[in-house]
Amino acid sequence: MTAAPPPAPPAEPPPVTRPALRRSRTDKVAGGVAGGLAEYSGIDPLLWRVGFVALTLAGGSGVLVYALLWLLMPSGPRTRADGAPAEPAGPRSPVAAFTVAGLLIIVGLLVLVTRYTDLDLGPRGFLASALLVVGLGLVASSFSSGRSPRGGLIAVGAVLSLAVLFTSAVPEMDDELGGVGDRSYRPETADQVLDRYSLGAGDLELDLSRLDAGDLDEPLDVRVDHGVGDLEVTVPDDFDVRVDVEHGIGDVDLFDQGAAGGLFRGDDGDGDVDLVLTIHSGAGSVEVSRA
């Protein structure tokens, strides 16, 4: 009697093919980036969108990252009304890759120039140079024969343009601002008053109301450099104060008399300046008042 042949081994399942990373044409709010990431990773698109919003609120990087992905990710295949795939749209233009490469090269060169020379370009120089590269990419895309990345380039350019406008509105500080977080200073005597108070981001309160004008041999000269946040300065009722404010974005209220600087006499002032207050503020409200 012939033995039965052994059973054939089970066939191996075919390998799972991961879809190409493309922007979605069916699940999209702005460009289809989150929908494309969801199709590629299997993670719900809502979580991707929440992540981009969180990055935007944390430091503004979410908008730039989204714009770069919009620029670099090709769009998904088109489908006809019956659900069948349409004809391929043709090769993608290399303008996007060249533009990103140009951005990296220009930013790297500017970092080297700033690092090893005395030239300090500041954030405006970096942003303006990046905007120039994106503009050249848009010009090149208009002459490209492949599928143009104009949408992504326009999104990146819009973000850079807003950043340039913001940095142009914010006055430049002479020295580096120090620290992040709320700060409060309440000197008791003139000797405890610093020549300069600085804060990068956060609310700053400077209370000088405890000072006595009779203890001053010469006017106090105080400078406040403040980046982002609310600034509140309180001075004694009898101080004659000269205020000079350079402010970017936000409201300025000097002794309930508007935003114009100048000499503000105290209730019992003798006409001699007791305090010269120079304020450089970037964004936020500025208020100078009396105790």
Rank of each mutant, 00 (worst) to 15 (best):
V50Q: 13
G51R: 13
G51K: 14
G51H: 12
F52W: 11
F52G: 07
V53Y: 13
V53C: 12
V53H: 15
A54D: 04
A54R: 06
A54S: 13
A54W: 09
T56E: 12
T56Q: 03
T56P: 07
T56M: 04
L57P: 09
L57K: 08
A58Q: 04
A58N: 08
A58H: 09
G59L: 03
G60C: 03
G60W: 01
G60S: 01
S61I: 10
S61L: 02
S61D: 02
G62E: 05
V63N: 05
L64A: 07
L64Y: 06
V65K: 01
V65R: 01
V65D: 06
Y66Q: 06
A67N: 06
A67V: 02
L68G: 00
L68N: 00
L68Y: 00
L69V: 01
L69S: 01
L69A: 03
L69G: 01
L69F: 02
W70E: 11
W70N: 11
W70T: 11
W70S: 11
W70R: 13
L71F: 02
L71M: 09
L71A: 03
L72H: 11
L72T: 08
L72D: 03
L72S: 10
L72A: 09
L72C: 12
M73I: 14
M73A: 10
P74Y: 05
S75E: 11
S75D: 10
S75H: 07
S75Q: 10
G76A: 09
G76R: 03
G76N: 06
P77L: 12
P77E: 14
P77G: 12
R80H: 14
R80M: 12
A81T: 15
A81S: 15
D82F: 14
G83W: 12
G83L: 13
A84S: 15
A84L: 13
P85C: 06
P85W: 06
P85T: 09
A86Y: 12
A86E: 14
E87S: 14
P88T: 02
P88R: 09
A89N: 04
A89L: 11
G90T: 10
G90S: 08
P91M: 10
P91V: 11
P91C: 12
P91F: 10
S93N: 13
S93C: 13
P94H: 13
V95K: 08
V95H: 04
V95C: 07
V95W: 08
V95Q: 06
A97R: 12
F98N: 11
F98Q: 06
F98T: 13
T99W: 04
T99Y: 05
T99N: 02
T99K: 04
V100W: 02
V100I: 03
V100P: 00
V100C: 00
V100A: 01
A101V: 03
A101N: 08
A101M: 05
A101G: 14
G102F: 02
G102T: 00
G102S: 01
L103W: 00
L103S: 00
L104G: 06
L104E: 00
L104P: 01
L104T: 06
I105Y: 01
I105M: 05
I106T: 14
V107D: 04
V107G: 00
G108I: 07
G108M: 06
L109I: 11
L109R: 07
L109E: 04
L109S: 05
L109V: 03
L110I: 11
V111P: 01
V111Q: 11
L112S: 06
L112H: 05
V113N: 00
V113R: 01
V113L: 04
V113F: 04
V113W: 02
V113P: 02
